[in-house]
Every structure is written in C-alpha cells, then in structure tokens.
Nucleic acid binder design. Structure first.
Lengths: 121, 121
DNA sequence: ATCTTTCTCAACCAAATGGTTGACAACGAA
DNA sequence: TTCGTTGTCAACCATTTGGTTGAGAAAGAT
C-alpha cells in the first residue's frame, strides 16, 4: 500500500470507476448497493473501491442499521490542488521568463509576432 | 495501458519519484541522466518513469545530439484541476445546504456543537 | 573507422491491483 | 427464532507496475 497521503489520493483517483463514484457522491451520500448499481461488477468490487477511496481520506463510511452510507470528504482535494498549483505556477513562471529572453533577442528567429503584451498574473 | 487521459495523468502522479521528477523539471529542463542522479535506481527505471509521464502528456522529450532534454508541459495540469474543482465545489455546496437545513431545525438532536468553524481534523 | 556517451528496448521478476466466488457478520422483519 | 438484506472478509486469478540486467541504436569524439 502506498505510504504517503498524496500518492494515495492520486492513485485513488487514477481509476475511472472511482472518479465516477466520487462524482456520484458529490450529489449526495449513498449506500454501497446504490453505488454499485450502475456498474456490471459485483458489490464486493465496489466495496474494494470504496476502501481505496477511504484509505485516501476521500470518503468516510458510517453505520446506519445494516446500511453503510458513504460520504464524500471534500477537504482532501486541497492536498492535490496545492501540489498541482505549486508546480504549474512554477512552470508557467519559467515559461514567461524564457519568453522574455526570446523577446529581448533582436531577431534571432524573426518569427516574433508584432504583438504588445498584457501582463497576465 | 489506461485508456482515458485523466486516468493517465492521475496515475502518472501517483508515484512519489515521478512527482519528484515533475518538481525538478519545474525548475528547468534536464537530461535523463541528470534526472536519474538523485535516486539509487538505474537510468532505465527513470526512463520508464519518463515514458509514463510522457504518455500522460505531462512531459515531452526532444533531441539534441545524444542528449534527450526533458521538458515539463504544464498545461495538462488543467485537466486535473478542472475535474477536482468541479466536485470539490459541488461537495462544498452540498455541505453548505445541509448546514442550512440543520441550522433551520430548532433542536432536532441538540448535540449541535456550539458554532465551531473548520473540521476537527 | 573505432570508441564513448546517452538513452531506449526487450526479457524477466516480484509485488500490487482489480476482478471473481464463497462464507459470514450485523441487523431489521416475519 | 428464522429469514432476507446489506456489506465485509478471505482466497484465488489475471494483468499491470516498478524494478532489474543485457543488448543495441544514435551521435559526437579520437
């Protein structure tokens, strides 16, 4: 089993069925049988998927008679978005700098579009 | 191999070594040997990781003499952030509505914690 | 031409993954 | 109590994955 939380979350969402389940749970809590209904796999398979999502902290299961309502824990998403945003911003910044360098070169390639730029972000 | 692009991206980032490589590439392009140096795995293993990242569209490899500089393609991140944001927002909206309902109920359960903000971890 | 460097491909291996079936625990209903 | 429903656990199976070693392609250096 993956050690670090970030790997667990990414790994959990790397499966289309599990992303589908998350999408379903965003609408509202559901039981395992309800979640399994749309797919032609056994309930056990869906239960396994839910365990993966639970280990990643994306989902929680409570007890209610025989039923086990599954609930989406949205806050774990932040872990991912923070990681993603960090490196995207860094890469975009780098790209911008490269762009500046190219622009500052008189006519190395000459394909420079005659454009005046705004300053995004 | 995973069919859909979203699964490929999530799956690619589910590995700590590959996330590390992405972090490194955010600083600047690098060759396979440079990328492999910090880890005690073979260059072949890193080459495989790069292939996974490339299939996910997160990275591109060009040719420059014998060297193959690896470049980070930041735009693919958007695919993920869009997906994540959508369901997080949906789940938060749902939580807000549930919160409203609970607040509008006079004293259904009475175990209501006194107005605390933020989840108790 | 022959070496050297850089990197990928192919074959193999152990472990993880996603699925199955079968057994059974927990609980409400009869 | 016995039955039906809901869900998990255990064992098993096929495929994928992350790693290895060994061979070889591509291009500059000698």
């Amino acid at each position: 089993m993956a050690a670090d939380p970030l790997s667990r979350v990414f790994s959990a969402l790397a499966d289309p069925t599990r992303r589908d389940i998350v999408a379903r749970l965003a609408i509202g809590d559901a039981t395992v049988n309800e979640l399994a209904a749309p797919y032609d796999v056994t309930v056990q398979a869906v239960s396994k998927h839910l365990r993966v999502l639970e280990d990643a902290g994306l989902v929680s299961r409570s007890r209610e008679a025989q039923r086990r309502p599954v609930h989406l824990e949205a806050n774990v998403f932040d872990l991912m978005t923070k990681w993603i945003e960090r490196y995207r911003r860094q890469a975009e910044e780098r790209y911008r700098r490269l762009d500046d360098v190219l622009r500052s070169m008189p006519d190395a390639v000459d394909t420079t579009p005659p454009k005046q730029e705004g300053t995004p972000s």
